[in-house]
Write a protein that binds this DNA or RNA. Sequence first.
DNA 1: CTGAAAGCGCTTACAG
DNA 2: CTGAAAGCGCTTACAG
Lengths: 344, 344
Amino acid sequence: MRDKATSFDIAHLAGVSQSTVSRALRNSPLVNKETREKVQAIAAELNYKVDKNASNLRRQQSGTLALLLFEDPTSDDSLINPFFLSMLGSITKASAKAGYDLLVSFQNLNDDWHAEYEDSNKADGIILLGYGDYVDYRDKLAKLEEQQTHFVRWGAHDVDHPGVSIGSNNIQGGFDITQHMINQGRTTFAFIGGADKHCPEFMDRYIGFSQALQEAGLVHNPVMQIEAISTEDSGYQATCSLLAAGLPFDALVCASDLIAMGAMRALRDNNISIPQQVAVAGYDNIPISSFANPALTTVQQNTKLAGEILVESLIQLINGSRVEQYLMPVDLVIRHSCGHVAQS
Amino acid sequence: MRDKATSFDIAHLAGVSQSTVSRALRNSPLVNKETREKVQAIAAELNYKVDKNASNLRRQQSGTLALLLFEDPTSDDSLINPFFLSMLGSITKASAKAGYDLLVSFQNLNDDWHAEYEDSNKADGIILLGYGDYVDYRDKLAKLEEQQTHFVRWGAHDVDHPGVSIGSNNIQGGFDITQHMINQGRTTFAFIGGADKHCPEFMDRYIGFSQALQEAGLVHNPVMQIEAISTEDSGYQATCSLLAAGLPFDALVCASDLIAMGAMRALRDNNISIPQQVAVAGYDNIPISSFANPALTTVQQNTKLAGEILVESLIQLINGSRVEQYLMPVDLVIRHSCGHVAQS
DNA sequence: CTGAAAGCGCTTACAG
DNA sequence: CTGAAAGCGCTTACAG
């Protein structure tokens, strides 16, 4: 092990006390400009960095945010939902911009993660991300809150949910995309995605979907809503069972792009043309979607903004401010899978 | 701020000394089984977690690995190369498995990152990831080595490069994919991607490409190698200039999938059919590629294995072992863009 | 503006 | 097997 310089070494070289070195390096206004510059010059030359562990221990904070990523337990172990990957990228950048380090961890819903980070002083706060089964981890959220851990959660807002949620407006998104398809002349709709309490995001998209149909005076047959989790494969299976049921439809709203990719594959395998016979819409605008054939019409969540708001909100929480839950607006990305040619 | 229990509180409640609490919680064999269990039970009940800052300060290590992600400075700010995103996922999992926390940071090549992490004791070692301009940051690598920082780098091996590199066998990959296209009957090749010292990965792929042509007795006209960085747009531009040059070709080897996506778009825009008129191959097997039209034949890097080896190697380095550079094998993923139907 | 000193919460060599 | 004590490297209230 190499031995590193300490603030005492710098003090010795600069001919000042160690306290002064510490102040100078933290840019304290108390210290004389010349002294400060001298100290900083010596520190730079020695490649001295303040020991974070000592500094954090003393200051009782960590300058670090923890990002806990839950995965859908049923999804392939080696694959991460591209949407979360994109969120991860934006959160990483946002925390760097805010001067925080980011600790990233993949969690299993069963793990005893709820205290791990902040209690051990590894992080000042936690960002929770993932389409987990909401019912399963509500208790843990409650416990986090009870322990006064600082955390924000990405996801749907729920009236009596513990903590602060930042999410996009899934009802609006479901509504907009369905309305777009109605405007394209579609009349008989099916919805693929689990619409129940366990996945509030999908549930909200389904609510928006239903609202749009109702507003247009179209009838929705509940049989035409098929459960699916957010994987290509699940979308494929669900679409196959929908086809097997034999009821006609000319529009397929999928709760996620991954589901839509699977749905399109199933339709293709059954020689059903998209969008001529069936229009397909997704949700998320993951990178794949623009390259699909036909390019997928979908709903875009602004991951860049989402990451920033998540990080900013958490920092506000850490600083003792109250934070409101926030519903992010959502954008329609019109491509070819619903029979409309993109403007751009 | 809530106040947290300390080891002294536990000691008091358990009726033992604080030293014994510390030992018990670290599962020291020195402490009596009953004492240990009692202490651990009390700690669990109080939700007590060892303060990492204090522990790390005392033990002079952090239990944390830092992942520095460099981005191609020219790429869109909000987009991360999907290949690296996938590596990020696998590194995250591998470090969790090894019991290390992972600090993730996006770096600009110009930043003064080379000392930041280990010098400040925030991390025990660093993983460097990114297709940066290699020439630009070689000096920093040298400095890292000089300071005896523990680090591993993802990328091409270079004889006189500083530090340990883990990378996939890009020469082999370039060779295999080109040979596959030759076997499909292609004779006139072009290569898109910057093949020079600044990007050793692309350079190696180009070397493999050239070897395959040479082995097959095919001539390669150097004019048919066009510079491009790893973006869809750059691939598009490069292909357009290739087409503008007017020389015929029936096979296009791209240094990355992103480039290939752009190349396919350019060919499509020029009404050139893939693979009938021109076969196109990529490199990376990013998720998009399987959904492209036609599905892209490419070279797969095993990101799961890569993440594990990167993490394991770094930990060995931290533990004082020597680590060899490692060249990972690479797999051909045959789909439709080179005129071959996938077996699967 | 500067210095001496206390203390953040642990781990571990030392003594028993 | 257990305890008292030193010390990791800082930050900051206190005194000047």
